[in-house]
Design a protein around this nucleic acid. Structure first.
Lengths: 188, 188
DNA sequence: CAGAAGAGTTCGGTCACCGAACTGTTTTCA
DNA sequence: TGAAAACAGTTCGGTGACCGAACTCTTCTG
């Protein structure tokens, strides 16, 4: 595979990874996918990424087997993008980079978001273990919850930001399309 | 801080991280820094990065407090770049992305490089713990060693690649400048 | 002190990214 | 059913980042 702008000559696995997830916006898209964002418009509104770039990134990630494009369920039948097992395997990387950012660039009030073990609601250690029970927590048992440093929500927040004002389990859909067609917060 | 190309509007810590380490080549530079690469020319020769880009990245990382520019010791007194504690804190992210690349893009023979716990030479788990003793291994106790999938070394390998053909402890200088001026492998 | 090596800088060409407007399809609701 | 809105992309011109090669200046070696 000779990408137009690859990291030629690198024998390192990190270079291979960077060819897939090292482009601008890609890791933010994947973070949103972990949060349960699934649709083109949700990614676009939440990230503010140029739509052409989003199109390119979703195609690249789908081609690489990190995301999968599937027909949506429920009333809104549009197609959705979801993480494959290969994509889910990127969770430690996303968690590590997020943790580094929180540690060195937290707002005054502390972290903006925290990751909790769903079983006991104790926060995760930097390495992904639970500070409460010490167990290695699989992705689907992680909650993302607002932290003390999170700015208060405003009426013009996009739906994704609004939904993330409450704790949410990773990999579960964040927004659903209600029968009336207006998007609302996940589980009723 | 209004970077020319920041991730505006993102309240997420991951976006902050990506502003620092998300540019092209940056994580590969940091990986090399973990390996013990310290000098401009070593980075340039090993990575094949355009020199102007390398200059920019080293300056950005130094400004961000991830790397520090220090006068070199020993006979070669040129200045060297080394990881600060803030830079060392990126190790879990580098390890996670490297591990993901090895898992999904390994060459036929297996991983190209492996990380070992220096104390018992057992490989590390994906989360950074030692498969032998189960301990969380601090960065300075990690060895990077050639794996079964590493291509055999050739005479025209750059000095960094040649030095990495043998196990090496992270964060320790990889190359030294011998009194004669010719760069040779680390500790005599 | 002369020569070589190291550490950047400069430069022109190319490519990726940006934001805004536009298109074609799907869904909603009167 | 049919009009209108929402949605998922595509198109387009302008700008900045990246690339490779050549060049300059400093530092080191013999």
């Amino acid at each position: 595979m000779t990408l137009p702008r690859d990291y030629r000559g690198q024998t390192c696995a990190l270079a291979r990874s960077m060819e897939i997830v090292g482009e601008r916006w890609t890791l933010l898209i994947l973070r949103d996918a972990f949060y349960g964002v699934r649709r083109f418009g949700e990614f676009a509104a939440h990230l503010g990424v140029p739509r052409a770039v989003l199109t390119d990134r979703l195609a690249t990630l789908t081609e690489a087997g990190v995301l999968a494009r599937r027909p949506g369920t429920g009333t809104g039948r549009r197609e959705v993008y979801g993480l494959t097992p290969k994509g889910v395997a990127l969770w430690p990387a996303v968690r590590a980079l997020t943790g580094w950012g929180e540690e060195f660039y937290a707002a005054g009030g502390g972290p903006r978001r925290v990751f909790l073990h769903a079983a006991d609601e104790a926060p995760l250690e930097p390495d992904g273990r639970c500070t409460g029970c010490g167990a290695a927590v699989p992705v689907q048992d992680v909650l993302v919850a607002p932290g003390p440093g999170l700015a208060p929500s405003t009426p013009d927040d996009d739906p994704v930001t609004a939904a993330l004002a409450r704790p949410h389990r990773l990999l579960t859909p964040l927004l659903t399309t209600a029968p009336s067609g207006r998007p609302t917060k996940g589980s009723p």
